[in-house]
């Protein structure tokens, strides 16, 4: 679980939502997507990952979904798929906008700082 930012969403939570924005995924695929999309800075371990999932399911941001029709058959354990809810989609959008704003502020300030020197 990464550090928390102002809006109350941790980096890991953000990336989990982000991974699901493309469509339903199962647990291990979420892990791989998070690792890819965070450019390797996040490598969620089982305990942390599923606590985040549980928390977001409890908060109704994520819900269990039917496996996609084209899902490849998988031997052994039946995979559980997770998907964004409408609330989850909103939360992700809000967080993305917030990040964008703060990023813009940061760029602006850094630009000024560079100009001064």
């Amino acid at each position: 679980m990464g550090p928390k930012n102002e809006s109350g969403m941790s980096t890991l939570e953000y990336h989990v939502l982000l991974a699901l924005a493309n469509g339903p995924l199962y647990g291990y695929a979420i892990k791989d997507a998070v690792a890819d999309e965070s450019a390797g800075t996040l490598a969620p371990r089982a305990g942390s990952l599923y606590r985040v999932l549980a928390r977001m399911m409890t908060a109704r941001l994520v819900a269990e979904a039917k496996p996609p029709a084209k899902a490849s058959p998988h031997p052994g354990l039946a995979r559980r798929y997770y998907a964004l809810t409408a609330a989850g989609r909103d939360a992700l959008g809000a967080e993305a906008r917030r990040l964008k704003r703060t990023a813009a502020v940061a760029e602006k300030r850094l630009g000024l700082a560079q100009g001064r020197s």
């Binding site: 199962y26 647990g27 291990y28 892990k31 371990r45 089982a46 305990g47 990952l49 599923y50 354990l77």
Partner: peptide, 12 residues
């Protein structure tokens, strides 16, 4: 979650 967690731990 236990089954999925175990699967991930084992695979990793």
């Amino acid at each position: 979650f236990a089954a999925e967690m175990t699967a991930q731990v084992v695979r990793d």
